[in-house]
Amino acid sequence: MSDAVEEVTRAQLRRGLRIATLLVAMAIVFGLGPANMLRHLDAYEPPLTQWAAFAALGAVLLGEAALLLRGRSWSRLRGPAIAVVLGASALSYVTLPDGRTSTTVDWIFGAANWVGVVVLLDRPPRSAALFLLAHELTALLNLLLLEDPTRGALARFATGSVTVIGFPLCVVVVAAILRGLSAAAMASRREIERVRVSEAVAAESHRRRQQRFAELSATTVPMLEGLADGSLRPEDPVVQRRCAIEAARMRRLFAETDTVANPLLHELRHCIDVADRKGVVVELDARGQWPVPPVVVRRDLTEAVLVVLATAASRARVTVVGSAELVSVSVVADCGDIDVPAPATPGVRVEALNNDDTVWMEAQWQPSRQRTS
């Protein structure tokens, strides 16, 4: 939203500068130009060429006004427009009286420069500088080749060139500075956004690490402390079973941050990997399609499988069946009697059956019921 506001502000600044420059050019061309021509009309041979040059400059200015109203720029017409301006300047000098270059009779000397700047305002400064140089050379060649260049005429030309080049060039420089400031502001904003994103990512990573430590501190940390102080013995089967369960929980915890298409199956495979390392043969069968359960729900669905697999002696089978209405995760293994883990999520239900050394355990979740609740 802020980027759009900034872009609108920059567009308004550029448009405002174009309008101001166009008004200055129109005041000079349509105001001072005809006044000077009418005052010295008898001096031109023939006067029609001056009116033709005036019409050419006026057409370019009217074209700029039309483009402004439509919110467009010169684009591909920029080159032909500059050619028209330079052609009008050359045409005016053809019928200019001798010794009148850069005088009030030479009305186009201080008019064509502004028209060219209007066309080149949104271009780099070198484009406008080259145009102004070409405009100056047109007048200078007329002075040197078609007139008798006296010292006074050359001094008058040099003095007039200061304003003919200087004022329009100042406008071009201001436009370039505005474009540079806009680009710098955009670059700064992007850098600020990048830093903010990096800080947010770092803060989120720190929060997740703290959350993981808090989740492990309830069961894993006490077990590690017991192994460290000797109160728990590694050769004890109960301790080994607890270690296997905590290892599976840690692998599941780390797998929760992975970006995968099916997080539930992804986390189940990490739980199965712990049983594989113990030599337990585990089969995994998945059928159907289901919505992605929240993290807390996935933990409840995988907790039963995790506990059974960590306790299984030699074989186990994990089955996942899902739809939009029900997700079921069940496991059968030769693990003997185990405690049924109580789900932390109200929408998850866990059932278990024991038959000698074989245990069947199932966790079910109904997505539709959670959405309606």
Rank of each mutant, 00 (worst) to 15 (best):
D3M: 01
R10E: 13
A11T: 06
G16Y: 07
R18S: 02
A27M: 14
L32C: 07
A35T: 12
L38E: 08
L41A: 10
L41T: 12
A43Q: 05
A43T: 07
A43Y: 11
L48V: 07
T49S: 03
Q50M: 09
Q50F: 04
W51E: 03
A52G: 05
A59V: 10
V60W: 03
L61I: 11
L61C: 10
L61M: 12
A66G: 06
A66L: 13
L67R: 04
R76T: 01
P80T: 14
A81S: 04
I82R: 12
A83Q: 01
A88R: 01
T95N: 01
G99T: 02
T103E: 14
T104F: 11
D106P: 12
D106L: 01
I108N: 11
D122E: 03
R126F: 09
L130Q: 08
L133A: 13
L133V: 03
L140D: 02
L143R: 00
L145D: 04
L146V: 01
P149H: 07
T150E: 12
L154Q: 04
L154K: 07
A158C: 15
T163A: 14
G166V: 09
F167L: 10
P168F: 12
V171E: 04
V172W: 03
L178V: 03
S182H: 09
S182I: 01
S182N: 03
A184C: 05
A187H: 06
R190N: 07
E193Q: 14
R194T: 11
V195T: 11
V201I: 11
E204N: 08
H206I: 12
R208C: 02
R209V: 08
Q210R: 05
Q210H: 02
Q210K: 15
F213Y: 09
S217G: 12
S217L: 04
P222T: 03
M223T: 15
L224C: 08
L227W: 06
L227M: 14
L227A: 09
A228Y: 04
S231W: 15
R233T: 13
E235V: 07
D236G: 09
R242S: 11
C243Q: 09
A248T: 07
E256A: 07
E256P: 01
T257N: 15
A261T: 02
N262Y: 08
L264Y: 07
L264V: 04
L264F: 08
E267S: 01
R269L: 06
I272W: 03
V282C: 08
E283C: 06
L284R: 05
L284N: 00
A286W: 03
R287T: 14
G288Q: 10
Q289L: 10
P291S: 14
P291T: 15
P294M: 04
V295G: 05
V297H: 00
R298T: 02
V305C: 08
L306M: 00
V308I: 06
A310L: 05
T311R: 14
A312I: 14
A316W: 09
R317S: 12
T319M: 01
S323K: 08
S323F: 02
V329G: 04
S330I: 07
S330K: 00
A333R: 15
D339H: 14
V340L: 10
P341D: 00
E362P: 09
A363C: 02
Q364D: 10
S368D: 09
